[in-house]
Amino acid sequence: MIRLILFAALSTLFIHHPVFAYYPELAYQLRKDRWEGIQPRPVSGDLGIELLSAVVDYTEPQTSFPATNKILFYLTNPAQIDLTVRELSPKKYYLLNRVKEKETWRQGFNPYQWSAETVLKPLNLKINQLGAVARVNRLENHPEERIAPVVLYHSTYPSKITGYRFTFKVGTDADLDYVIYSDNNSALLSKKELGKRTGGEPFVILWDCSEAPAGHYELVVDGHSLRDNSPLHQSVKFYHQPEIKGKF
């Protein structure tokens, strides 16, 4: 009887608290080989530039919810990978990370897949609302990022990579521009002014790489904060492998 009363009291206390006003089965938790679910809203403490997503510019049409979502990324050498999948424009605060499938991922293309039915389907989140980033040998955001661009798909992956979408967020209102270098010959491939960007609002840099040969590249986002003119800098190094061969 006492247990029942305690249970009722605690349930009332917790269920009526707005923080717990979502389905607990969708909460961020360990699910087989990954941590996935609704994360708390992010802290807006970091005023620097943050890389949210680095994916191949490829959107598969999605008419119904697939059973699984898939990821493919290329590594030049075996490496540890910190894989993160999240909403591009956070509304439901979906997050997938801490994938425990492998300690070290192999050289070449690495596939990974996870169920879309456990969290994504109840949240009605489609693949085009998601972003992903595979950080190489590093577990947190850093001004000098080394990443493996990710192909995000659910049934068919592209045979050729013709573009990349990099999504960033800056912590404060800032004036920014970006350049893309080829690490093969240090040539400047692209340069563009991004103009004023609102703090906390994600934005996308799209790079058309249809003419770019395979090799190492670097995207540099530079600028200054409009609040106190402090300089802002973010570099993203990656390897561009234009063709996807093999079955995954």
Binding site: S89, N128, Q129, R165, E201, V204
Partner: peptide, 10 residues
């Protein structure tokens, strides 16, 4: 353009 590009107008 497509929603995944997070289009905006200022």
């Amino acid at each position: 353009q497509a929603a995944e590009l997070l289009p905006s107008v200022t």
